[in-house]
Each structure stands twice: as C-alpha cells, then as structure tokens.
Write a protein that binds this DNA or RNA. Structure first.
Lengths: 147, 147
DNA sequence: ATCAAATTGTTTGAATTTCAAAATGAGTAT
DNA sequence: ATACTCATTTTGAAATTCAAACAATTTGAT
C-alpha cells in the first residue's frame, strides 16, 4: 500500500463510504428526523435558481417519479410547498418552508466542520493542489459517458 | 464561490454524490448485473484476512442482519460460499467464487481510471498534499462520535 | 387555428436495501 | 449443569428508487 495511487484509492473508498451514514447519525442526534435523501432534496431546492421538479431531479441524479414521491412526504411533513410556474403551467416549482431552512443551517455547519478538518495541517498555499485534484475528479465524472 | 473552503465543499458534494451511480452504470454496461451494494460486499470479503459475517458487516458499516440478506442473494447467484470457521463454529466465513473475482477485476479497473484522472495535471511531488488531505478527512470520520 | 409531438409531472407496482427485534446455536465460565 | 455471552439467521417493516402508464400543457408545423 505504499504506492501513492493505491493509498489514495484506499482512503477515498474508506472515507466516502461512511460520510453519508455518519452525517445522517449526526443529524438524528440533533433531533432532526429527516433522512439524508430528504436533506439532499432540500439542499438542491435551495441551490437551484428555478427549482422545478425536472431541474431538482436532474441535479440529484434521480428520476422525476422518484422525486415526486420524495416531495410528497416532505410536503406532508411541512418542509416544502408546491406552486405552478406562472410562465409554464406544466412546471411545478418547489419552495422551502422556514422549517427546511433551519435544517439546512445545521447541515451546513456539519459540512463546515468537515472542510475545516481537511485544513488541520494543510498549509494555506497548498489549497491549489487540492482544488486542482477535486476539479479533475469532478470533471472526470461530469463528462463520464453514462448512455 | 471564490473562498477555497466553499469551493472544496461544492466540488466534494457535486462529485461524490454521483460516483456510486456512475460506477453502477459502468458495471451494468459491461454486462455485470450486480448492484454497488453487492460489489462492496465482495470487495470487503476480498480485503479482509478473516471474512466473518461480523467483520464484513463492520467494515461496511451495516448490521449483520442486513449482511445475511445480502450474502443470501450473492450465494443464490453463485458469487460466494459460506463455510464455518474450524476454530470457532459460531463464525461463518465467506469465500469468493471465481465469478466474483472476475467482477472485482473490472471494478478495480474502474477505480484505476478514476485515480489516474486525478493525476492528469498533478505533479508527482504534490502527492503528499493530497494524501495528507485524505488522511485528515479519513481520520475525522473514523473518530467521529456516532453513539 | 389545428393537431401531432414534445415536455412536465404524477401515479402505481415492484425491486432493493436496510434495520430492529426475536430466535437459534455454539462457546465460556462459574 | 447453568447461566451468560457471542455469532448468525430469520422475519416483518420502512425507505428509496425505478420503469411504465397516464394526464396536462406547451410548442411547432402545416
């Protein structure tokens, strides 16, 4: 395991297999009873300029049908509202209730602590290497031929 | 998004949300009809020196009950065998059929391409920064207080 | 203007994954 | 022997997701 490439692979697999579970547990301990899937839906809604069903589903990489089910329960629990796009009444836009915004704050704090941990003994001028690396990975998967 | 920390977070979220799905699609296209969960079970078995049910479940972060269900179907499909530990017959050890080893080769090739993409324009002497970073993240989550 | 095709979303039924709790079987210690 | 612990399986339920069928709206071509 002294080969840098193998080491990097081990660390990636070891770590990212656990992040979602751990983050879920962390939220539960704070008293938030939403799953990570549900959190991600709320997050996507918050980030999109025009959060239509199709746009959200695409950002999450799930089908619109699956998203409909998810939004149904989030609406039931009082986290989101649906309203028709006035310019195109086929579209259904989603908005967040205050309750959802509060949850996203907690989620954001978790991520901040995670990122801070990356910097523990990383010198500031080494940022660029990490960012370049992440860009490479991101690009690699963004252009990956799925179909 | 010019803040390095925010940028890193964006890239992490954007990328790692998609890796599992993409890897699953990649395997499907090669004609492998196992889910990523099933692949991970096989991978854990391959990596552990003494792959007992408890050891595998712990490595994967799932309950032993869940693993039993998974192993049932993997056995049904002819990927694994069960045999009792001769030293402690309470334990059930898992071994891989050739079929499973073949699948893991494909999986390994996918990971190799992924890691190679990281190196696209990374100078070799910058390895250390990336490895240090990943170690930080890995440590952070390894010691994360779940209970 | 009209009609067919494309787009957007919902519903439904099924498959997968996972868990918690109860049950079984094997080892350990008193 | 008896009770206790450990390793695993079984079972029933919940969550997540998909594909396919359906309905409503918009777009574009004639």
């Amino acid at each position: 395991m002294q080969n840098p490439k193998e080491l990097i692979n081990e660390l990636l697999v070891e770590t990212f297999n656990r992040i979602l579970t751990i983050e879920g547990e962390a939220l539960k301990k704070v008293g938030i009873k939403l799953s990570m899937s549900e959190i991600h839906v709320l997050e996507a809604v918050a980030l999109l300029p025009e959060p239509s069903m199709t746009a959200i589903a695409q950002k999450l990489g799930i089908t619109v049908g699956s998203l409909t089910v998810a939004i149904n329960t989030l609406f039931q629990k009082g986290y989101v509202r649906r309203y028709p796009d006035p310019l195109d009444r086929r579209k259904v836009l989603i908005s967040l209730e205050q309750k959802a915004k509060d949850v996203l704050e907690v989620h954001k704090a978790f991520h901040k602590r995670m990122i801070d941990s990356i910097y523990v003994d990383l010198k500031l001028d080494e940022d660029e290497v990490l960012i370049k690396t992440l860009r490479n990975v991101s690009e690699y998967f963004k252009n990956y031929p799925i179909d």
